[in-house]
Write a protein that binds this DNA or RNA. Structure first.
Lengths: 341, 341
DNA sequence: TTGTACGCGTTATCAT
DNA sequence: ATGATAACGCGTACAA
């Protein structure tokens, strides 16, 4: 089939097969109108027959462009980032840009290592989840002239270009909603705070909103620790088993925690939302299907991914780009929130 | 800070700053023992100060090695593949190999396009989920001498190197388990079959096992269509609302479908597992936490990802590698399966 | 329209 | 131990 057995064919192989020079081969693909139709045909035919694919490394060097972008996420194993990645990759693919994905496992040193690896690969633009990165990381990118965007977190005061939403405001909204329902006694179930600016912002949002009404969360009712459904279960049990008055509302750091809390409440014979209101965050696909369906906040992560890609593409094109694009989250009251008894 | 304002520094910048040639710069990083300690220090210092990262494209060309591997998955938005990707990336990272991830959206043409893009990027090894790929794709890889592995699906008769498990056998096991409990009347709720060899194999497994006992699934009790919790709900309702005898056991193509079916059963007042047994597949993190906890089959996807990477690394090292590595799934009976009434 | 020749950034060979 | 220099594969001025 191919005459370049066992190794990838080069442009010179195609050129030889088509009886032209490598320049004509290159032009056939990069400036077809500058090639005579017959020659073009021969080249295309030869390229197809040999299965030639122009080696990107050569092209990158010659053009001074790699057509690679990067995205550093905390973990693959979270619907939120998976959706952002998918949308971003699709958006970049339309411009024939390859997206390199790096995973930090919520470790800012690993994130920095990933960024370095990506820079070595010649990424022309970079997206990063959250701004809680190693000090100097963004300066380094600036110094190298690599445009970047922070996704998901979108603090109003952030000095970086960003797309996402204000986590603090989102959690103030949730808290206010519960306050307006009449709740005064709150519990918190959250994922770890380390290397996660979003979580810190969310907690701050709740506490600020409560403080404005002279309220606060009792330490034993604030469970900030692990990720996942099980931590939600364990935490709810610990909160309800604690001495003193029980909270009437539990604000969770994400849907998985809230689902855990909801399941545990049922297991403990605590009625949701009658005895206890619970809120999640993210509107995971399962949230609406549960019984009772979870009150939560929807974030359009596909839009965040697409928008981030769009901003980076615009920056690469030298266009003006706003410092901040908000993708507003929407609180969706469903079956796990109600007035306290 | 850096003296190469706005652009990435080159080896020659470092060489100039350290008062050596680029050869010494290169050696400092690739063969440090061949460089005098003082010179080495000067180079390291200059590199650090300038923030030099060797541009991978140049190195790839010079070395004839890109240190890039690829993994084509159907979708990001599935815990199963997310975990495989994470583990594979971690395994490759230990050898300083960058993993390029491509997403086909269950479209074999897109998968082929992704593979081409990866080959153009110079991937040295490739993993692909499932063997249901465009005809000739694997031959193309063979012709170019790019080693590849099929993950997840692992048919005994498959002609390709693979790591995963036998989907057909796994579903025969599930079916046999239910038959042994006394079930004779089955329903099926499955994700789409197109471009998904695993699903086809799973369905075949159920049907074979039933056929051996002279049983089959009534067409109206076989719902093969969409993905996700909602399809599970809709399908269960349709099955239970159909005329004629109701199934006593529902075999689902994955956990999400089973969770949907389980939720709908409860909503319809059908007792699980008393009136109806339900099985899932994958042992998603939520499965064990539900009420009742889902009977399902656990697959060690992290191991699949690690093993696939290991096989590819071994192949790159020219070592002998088995054609097939089985990562056996484990059926976990929990609360959604019981004897029929 | 086409081919020659150079350069992209790095590594590796070969002198020194 | 070190430096000049020639690849690597491609794109693109420039010349023809």
């Amino acid at each position: 089939m191919t005459s370049t057995n066992g190794r990838a064919p080069r442009a010179r192989d195609v050129a030889a097969a088509a009886g032209v020079s490598t320049a004509t081969v290159s032009r056939t693909f990069n400036a077809p109108d500058k090639v005579a139709p017959e020659a073009r045909e021969r080249v295309l035919e030869a390229a197809r027959r040999l299965g030639w694919l122009p080696h990107a490394a050569g092209g990158a060097l010659a053009r001074g462009r790699t057509a690679i972008a990067g995205f550093v996420i905390p973990t693959f194993d979270n619907e939120v980032f998976a959706v952002q990645v998918g949308a971003m990759q699709a958006a970049f693919a339309e411009r024939d840009i390859t997206l390199l994905i790096g995973c930090s496992n919520y470790d800012s040193d690993r994130a920095a290592t990933q960024v370095e690896a990506m820079l070595a690969r010649g990424v022309e633009a970079l997206a990063v989840v959250g701004e809680a990165q190693r000090p100097g990381l963004f300066d380094f990118l600036d110094a190298r002239g690599v445009p970047f965007v922070v996704t998901y977190g979108c603090r109003p005061e952030s000095p970086y270009r960003r797309v996402g939403f204000d986590n603090r405001a989102a959690y103030r909204d949730i808290t206010r909603y519960l306050l307006d329902l009449g709740h005064r006694n709150f519990g918190l179930i959250f994922q770890p705070e380390e290397n996660n600016d979003r979580v810190a912002e969310r907690l701050a949002g709740v506490r600020e909103e409560l403080a404005e009404r002279g309220l606060s969360v009792r330490p034993r009712h604030a469970r900030i620790g692990r990720w996942g459904v099980r931590w939600g279960r364990e935490s709810l049990r610990a909160i309800l088993d604690a001495d003193g008055p029980r909270p009437t509302a539990i604000i969770c750091g994400n849907d998985h925690l809230a689902i855990g809390a909801s399941l545990e409440a049922r297991a403990m014979g605590v009625e949701v939302p009658g005895d206890l209101s619970i809120t999640g965050f993210d509107d995971v696909s399962l949230a609406a299907e549960l019984d009772p369906p979870l009150s939560t906040t929807r974030v359009d992560n596909a839009r965040i991914g697409r928008t981030a890609a769009g901003m980076l593409l615009a920056l690469l094109d030298g266009e003006a780009v706003p410092d901040r694009i908000e993708v507003p989250p929407v609180f969706i009251p469903r079956g796990t929130t109600a007035r306290p008894r």
